[in-house]
Amino acid sequence: MNYLSTIMENKLVVTIAVILVTFAIRYLALKLVGKNQRRNGQDQRSLKSNIKNFLIFVLVLLLINLWADEIQRFAFSLAAFAVAIVLATKEFIQCIIGFFYWMSSRPFRVGDWIEVDQYAGEVSQIDWIKTTVLEVNIDTYQYTGKTLSIPNNRFITSAVQNLNFMKRYAIHSFVLVRDDSNINPFSFIQQLRSNAKLYCHDFEDVALRYNQIIEHKMGIKITGPKPTIEVGTTELGHIKLEVTIFCPTDQTMEIEQKITADFFALCQGEQTESVLAE
């Protein structure tokens, strides 16, 4: 009895014995069926196949029952290992999922301007893990010289703005403020609007076509191409002019400086006339 228990504890020996016995029974059964087939002249291939499958099924059940504890421990270890791997590589997995999201939806392409988490720039390269972006100052529309590496998982967790239409033409808005209460901006607002329109005259036709293309593509009405200037006041009661122009991206700051210079010059003229009148 002790000898039998010792053998049963050595599962490897028992496993080999079970496999040998199973294949021996399989060999004898198939040989017996083969003799009957030659004697009776009947096709026994179906019976042979059933015997093979049945014995393999029995062998698998015996081995699973024999190694049940080890299989269970291995499964738990494998699951724990898999969980550890997933936790350790969670960010990389999310980045790969973000890459597949980009592949399926294509919200932008290489060469487009995008904005993600307040970072804006031109997409220069996209791989499985990250997207390389050449940073652009969204206020001046100029390259900063910095290169950003944005993990692809940001495309799932953050809003991605495609600014590609701003690469050539931009809706540029800026505010002009003057704290002199003696100035009446309505006395020169028309002159300022005429000056702004003059600065945008050279590209007016191209801007109109580009504006129409953007509106058709986006399905909405956008500002432009004519410049607009609205008069208002700040919370402190100072005079405020809100200027919006639709112009080539590389000319935004130049035109802004011209309009700003005209504004202060007109304010100075209005102030001089007010002093002379007094």
Rank of each mutant, 00 (worst) to 15 (best):
F54C: 09
Q142F: 01
T233C: 08
A196N: 06
F264V: 07
N10L: 06
I138V: 12
P225C: 09
L12R: 07
G232A: 09
R193E: 12
P225M: 07
I7A: 09
V123K: 03
R106K: 15
Q142R: 12
V275P: 00
I71S: 09
F174A: 00
T233D: 08
E270F: 05
Y101W: 13
L192F: 04
L62W: 07
K217F: 09
V175C: 03
S5I: 08
G34E: 08
N40D: 12
G111S: 09
S124N: 12
I222F: 06
F108D: 05
F263S: 06
A207K: 02
G237F: 12
F186T: 07
T272W: 07
F188V: 03
F100P: 02
E70V: 07
M253C: 04
I138P: 01
F100I: 10
I129A: 10
D179F: 08
N10D: 14
A84S: 13
V83A: 15
F108G: 06
E9L: 00
D250M: 08
N153T: 04
L30E: 04
S194W: 06
R178I: 10
K226N: 13
L148C: 08
E242P: 01
M1G: 11
L134D: 11
H238F: 14
E91H: 09
V136F: 01
I85A: 12
T233Q: 15
Y27I: 05
Q268N: 14
I71L: 15
F54I: 13
I189R: 11
L241P: 04
R209N: 14
T157W: 07
S158N: 11
I183K: 02
L61C: 13
Q72I: 15
A24R: 00
A29E: 08
P185G: 00
R193L: 14
S194H: 10
A120T: 12
N162I: 06
D69W: 11
N137L: 06
Q190D: 13
R106W: 01
R38I: 09
N65D: 07
S104P: 01
E215P: 00
D127S: 06
E215Q: 15
F165K: 09
K197C: 06
K31F: 12
E235H: 10
I222P: 02
A196L: 07
I7D: 02
F57A: 15
S5G: 08
T228F: 05
V33D: 03
G219D: 08
T249F: 02
V60C: 10
L266Q: 04
R109S: 14
D117S: 10
F174T: 01
I214L: 04
V110E: 14
L62C: 14
Q44E: 13
N164T: 15
E235N: 13
L47D: 06
F74T: 12
V206M: 11
T6S: 12
Q257A: 15
K167N: 10
D262E: 13
S105K: 13
T228H: 04
A265N: 14
V133K: 03
L59K: 04
T252F: 00
K31M: 10
Q42T: 11
T233L: 14
